[in-house]
Design a protein around this nucleic acid. Structure first.
Lengths: 226, 226
DNA sequence: CGGCAACATTCGGATGTCCTAAATCCGGAT
DNA sequence: ATCCGGATTTAGGACATCCGAATGTTGCCG
C-alpha cells in the first residue's frame, strides 16, 4: 500500500469495499441486501456494482449467495478504513472536533486525501493504534489489530473492566455515552442487571448510571489493566 | 456563505466556477475555449456544462460570446477559493508541506471539507489574509482583498520592492523561485534588465540572481515597507 | 414435495459528465 | 460586401451510477 495504489478508485467503490469489509468483520454475511441497507442504496444498484467490482478483481461473487473481498479488495478497503480513522483522530486531536461530530467529515475526507497526507497526519499523531472510538487503525501495510474483549452487555457483575471501543456512529448516542463516562479507556464496573433485556446499572468515572442492552452491546470491554 | 450553502454542488461545478472566476479576475474573457484550456477539457464539454450552469442561475451566458458569474456563481466560486487557500495555508503551517507541493492536495480537499472544517482551520491559522503564495483568502462572507502591486517584470531598477504574491502553480518553478529567494515577503531590488525580453537581474535575500521575464511577470510586488 | 415469501438479478430508463464529428456562427481580411 | 478560418454549439455516443418494475432463485414450512 505504501507506494502507488490503483489510482482512479471512485468514492463509490471505496464505500462499497468498506461496507463489505465492515460486514465481514462483524461476522455478518455480505449479501446484496445487507450492503444496500448499509449504503442506503437499492438492491439493484448493489447488484450492478458487485458485478463490476468482481470483474475488476476486487470481489469474489457467488450469485444469489453474497460476496467476499479478494486480497486486492481488502487492501483497498483497509486503506480507506485507515484514512477514515486517521482523519477522525487528527480532527479530534488538532482541530477541536469531538468524537460525536467527526464521522461525517471523515466520511468525505477519506476519499480525498493523498497517501502523503494520510501519513503526515499519522506522524503528527505519533502513529496511533486506535482512533477516538477505540477502533484499531490499520497500518499502511494493511495490517489491523484484532479487538479483543466482550460487549459490556456480557460483562459479569462486580468485575472492573476497561472500555476499549465504542461501536457507534450516531452523534446523539455518542454524546450520551460520553456523558455517562463510557469512553475508551474508562474503567467501569457493572453493579446490576435487570432481567428480560432490562437496563444495566454500572459505576463509571462519571458516577452511577444505567444503559440499555442495545447500547451496551456496542461497547467492547476487557479486563482493566492490573 | 456563512451557514447552509447549496448542498449538492459537485466537484466539477466548483471547478468550472473557479476557473471562470480566475479568468475574469485576470481580466481575460471567460470564453468556452479559455475555460476548456484551463480545465483541460474539450470545448463541447464546456459548452454543455455552461448551459447547465446557466440554467441553474450560476452563470450568465451570451451564446458565442462568453460567460460571466452571477452573484450566486461568484459566491460559490469564492467559497471554493477560500477553501483552497485555507487548505494550502493549513498544510504548510501544520503538516510540513511546502508551497510547491500543496496545490494538488488542496485541489481535492477544497471539494471535500465542510464549512465547519474550513472555519476551524482558519481559526487555527489565526484567520490569515493570504495563503503561502501570497494569494488573498476570501472571507467567509465572500469579500476578497484586491492585490495591489506590479509584476516584477515591470519594476524599475534600483527600487526596493517586496514580493507580495507569486502566481504560479507548477511545483518545479515554485521550488526554483524559492531557491532564488523569491517568496512572499522577500524584499528585492532589480539591478538590471536586458533588452528584448531578456532576463532580469536582481538582488534578493538569497543573493543575486536572474529570472526570465515570463516567470517575473507572475511575481507581484509593491513598494517595500518604509 | 410443492408453494410461497424473501432475496437477488435482469431489464429499461434517468442523470451527469465526458468525448469526437459535424454543423453553425462571427469577425476580420480581401 | 463577401468569404474564410477559428471559435462555438449541436448531434450522437460512451461511461458510471442510480432507480423502479419485472423476473429468477432459494430454501423453508406446511
Amino acid at each position: 500500500m505504501g507506494a502507488t495504489v490503483a489510482s482512479a478508485v471512485t468514492r463509490s467503490v471505496e464505500d462499497y469495499l468498506k461496507a463489505i469489509y465492515r460486514l465481514s468483520t462483524a461476522g455478518q454475511p455480505a449479501t446484496t441486501s445487507a450492503i444496500a441497507a448499509l449504503l442506503e442504496l437499492s438492491a439493484p444498484s448493489v447488484s450492478g456494482m458487485v458485478k463490476r467490482l468482481s470483474e475488476q478483481g476486487l470481489l469474489e461473487h457467488v450469485p444469489y449467495r453474497g460476496v467476499a473481498l479478494t486480497a486486492a479488495g481488502r487492501r483497498l478497503a483497509l486503506r480507506t478504513v485507515r484514512r477514515h480513522r486517521l482523519v477522525e483522530s487528527y480532527l479530534v486531536a488538532y482541530l477541536g472536533y469531538s468524537w460525536d461530530t467527526v464521522h461525517d467529515e471523515a466520511e468525505r475526507l477519506e476519499h480525498a486525501i493523498s497517501d502523503e497526507l494520510a501519513e503526515r497526519m499519522a506522524t503528527a499523531l505519533g502513529n496511533p493504534g486506535v482512533d477516538p472510538h477505540g477502533d484499531p487503525i490499520p497500518t499502511a501495510d494493511g495490517d489491523i489489530a484484532e479487538v479483543t474483549g466482550m460487549p459490556l452487555s456480557d460483562v459479569p457483575e462486580g468485575v472492573a473492566v476497561e472500555v476499549r471501543r465504542v461501536n457507534e456512529h450516531d452523534a446523539e448516542r455518542l454524546r450520551y455515552l460520553a456523558s455517562l463516562g463510557l469512553v475508551p479507556g474508562a474503567v467501569v464496573t457493572v453493579t446490576g442487571r435487570l432481567p428480560f433485556d432490562g437496563p444495566i446499572t454500572l459505576s463509571t468515572p462519571a458516577g452511577t448510571h444505567a444503559v440499555g442492552p442495545g447500547l451496551a452491546a456496542d461497547i467492547v470491554c476487557s479486563r482493566a489493566a492490573e
